[in-house]
């Protein structure tokens, strides 16, 4: 099941979905981002969408949307040219519904992630002068508290929440370690080096089960092998007490499918990836195999894939700005 919209721009960089509150009512809205404009779309009848707010960027281009769960009146975006230079909050003043932007952070921003309970974690700088900060927003997004986490002695590459443990946060580093923080105290709990065969991996999601951490990694540089085909995602089990790890599941493409990981998103137990072939592939991490393949539509390769934060929909984007919404 699909619908489409054209944000009338040729430089689509990201898409997201969130609940947006207007006049006391929350609606499931779509956010589209191009380099110079971010738009908020509200649903109309018969799966049509209407653009309700637009924020323009003339100086620094938009790189990505940073979804922050549990916020209903604010969108966070990262701006920069190749590297992230700013994080901004996009909101509307309550009186006249006029769009405005607030600078949240600037500098050499290496990684960021929106967390449950209206929190945003970001890291700036490299290992010797690295600062890791949590911003907590008020319900209306108007004010914020700030807290620092103890930095590790390695540069953070990505962050990942631990499903079911709101006070735990994972980070991956540029030299192939996984670190764990206690968000309540800011303590750095553990640094665990994982096998070098996982190098340059990105951690998308983590789950705590039976005393073990299960983490989902993607492999942008993984090579095809005869035994495993084309690996795209990997599920790894780590014992946080001993820092020992073992591979549990390798998500490879079905035979006959070509391509490597380009970008992807993991929600609950489903993982979606855009492949270099322009196809989107979806894996069920519980079943352990690829459950759906979405070939390019209208001869246009896919360039973006995101799970909706509001329901079980998949948002698929093409470079020309068209967004397709699929029910999974």
């Amino acid at each position: 099941h699909s619908t489409e919209q054209n944000p009338s721009s040729s430089c689509s960089v990201d898409v997201s979905a969130m609940w947006w509150e207007r006049a006391g009512t929350k609606e499931p809205c779509i956010i589209t981002a191009c380099e110079d404009v971010v738009s908020l779309w509200k649903p109309l009848d018969s799966m049509q969408w209407e653009k309700v707010h637009t924020w323009h960027f003339t100086e620094v281009p938009v790189l990505q949307i940073v979804p922050v769960p549990d916020i209903y009146s604010l969108i966070c975006v990262a701006l920069g040219s190749l590297e992230i230079r700013e994080i901004r909050a996009l909101l509307c003043s309550s009186g006249d519904e006029c769009e405005k932007q607030v600078l949240l952070q600037s500098g050499d921003i290496k990684a960021m992630l929106g967390l449950t309970k209206r929190r945003l974690v970001s890291s700036t700088g490299t290992f010797c002068n690295q600062q890791i900060q949590i911003m907590t927003f008020a319900e209306d997004g108007s004010s914020k508290d700030e807290q620092l986490l103890m930095p590790p002695d390695e540069t953070i590459l990505t962050f990942a929440e631990v499903h079911g443990m709101q006070e735990a946060l994972l980070g991956t580093t540029t030299v192939n370690s996984i670190v764990i923080w206690n968000l309540k105290t800011g303590q750095l709990l553990k640094k665990m080096h994982i096998d070098d065969s996982y190098q340059t991996c990105v951690c998308h999601r983590a789950y705590s089960e039976m005393g073990l951490l299960f983490i989902v990694l993607s492999h942008p540089c993984a090579k095809e092998s005869q035994a495993f085909g084309s690996p795209v995602f990997q599920l790894l089990a780590i014992n946080p007490m001993t820092a020992q790890s073992v591979g549990v599941l390798l998500c490879s493409l079905p035979q006959g499918q070509a391509g490597r990981f380009l970008e992807g998103d993991v929600k609950d137990h489903v993982a979606a990836a855009v492949l270099t072939s322009g196809t989107i592939a979806i894996w069920d991490l519980l079943l352990g195999h690829c459950t759906a393949l979405l070939p390019p539509v209208s001869d246009q390769s896919w360039s973006l894939v995101k799970w909706s934060g509001t329901d079980s929909h998949l948002l698929a984007g093409q470079k020309d700005g068209n967004i397709f919404i699929y029910r999974y």
């Binding site: 443990m165 764990i180 709990l189 039976m210 007490m241």
Partner: peptide, 23 residues
């Protein structure tokens, strides 16, 4: 490979590591 290779497991790993880590 098996999770038995990972050493002793603690269901309260988060609390245990928090009590051991520097503040």
């Amino acid at each position: 490979c098996s999770t038995a290779d990972l050493g002793p497991i603690s269901l309260n790993w988060f609390e245990e590591l928090s009590s051991e880590a520097p503040p």
